[in-house]
Nucleic acid binder design. Structure first.
Lengths: 151, 151
DNA sequence: CTATAATCAGACAAAAAACTCCCTTTGGAG
DNA sequence: CTCCAAAGGGAGTTTTTTGTCTGATTATAG
């Protein structure tokens, strides 16, 4: 309804990494198992997040992915601008390329306040808080945690 | 960000039809020209809306599409349930299949109120109102109205 | 009856999104 | 130094969405 699968995987993975000990690289395979998400596809997404400066990666034994310094406080909006593209916030609900107060679609003035709620929410939620919520054990990051069944 | 292209075309087309004289069939080609949308694709969408009971269609000369009786008051939610599928309202922002108050993702309790705003908006806007807004001339249904250039 | 103009129907094509495979590069452990 | 396990990278495949084409059906006008 709002996010592409790629963005959903990215956010899930980042929250999961944020729940792990900082500085200790997390394996792509472990994340994929935990989130029950295709590993090879997730790897591409993590690689991209590396290039964008959100994650650091380490190769070879003891390799894996870490959040870069300060990125615990990254909010979801910042991440989604990377995964959905820079026009993410600019979209008209009817799909018009040009839709502003001056050139409005018939839904514009009703939609804008709702959109502001969405963007506000995405701006106020950061990885650290979400990770802490998960760590309480009250919230789920994935549907059927296959890793949890095995361990 | 929220709606598929198919849904956007469907809503645009229905609003446009609602602006036209009731009972006088509107041509697919005219709608497509006006909205600057692929005609053959739009035809499929309109056919589907016929099967779903929103539109009536007439073949042959003087043919075209009309809103069925009472459908002027159809709200956007009802239309989107047809074009996006019955799970449209049920989606979790992180993509979890199972995400309720009992089995919540870490965004759930913050997301639900925002989602309610979205669904509330879609529920309160109907074709008649949107058509009237367009008829004032203050709002646009399409990006570059090619038909307006010709006429 | 015939020509014409509209929708209907189904197969097809192209583009985008989601996902996979294979091989290379890297770096730690033995 | 060698082996192995990790990420890196590029091409390829599958699936979904979007869009096209062709011919059949229907109904009106002349």
């Amino acid at each position: 309804m709002v996010l592409s699968r790629t963005s959903q995987y990215a956010v899930q993975a980042l929250i999961y990494i944020a729940t792990q000990t900082p500085g200790e690289p997390v394996l792509n395979r472990d994340i994929a198992d935990r989130l029950n998400v295709p590993a090879a596809y997730l790897a591409k997404i993590l690689q991209n997040l590396c290039k964008q400066g959100v994650l650091a990666s380490f190769r070879g034994r003891l390799g894996g992915f870490c959040l870069r310094d300060g990125m615990h406080r990254t909010n979801l909006m910042q991440i989604l601008l990377l995964t959905e593209g820079p026009d993410f916030t600019k979209s008209c609900i009817l799909g018009l390329k040009e839709c502003s107060d001056a050139t409005a679609c018939p839904m514009h003035f009703k939609w804008i306040p709702v959109k502001k709620k969405i963007l506000g929410l995405l701006n106020e939620m950061n990885l650290e808080e979400l990770a802490k919520a998960v760590q309480t054990g009250k919230y789920r990051l994935a549907d059927l945690p296959t890793a949890a069944l095995a361990g």
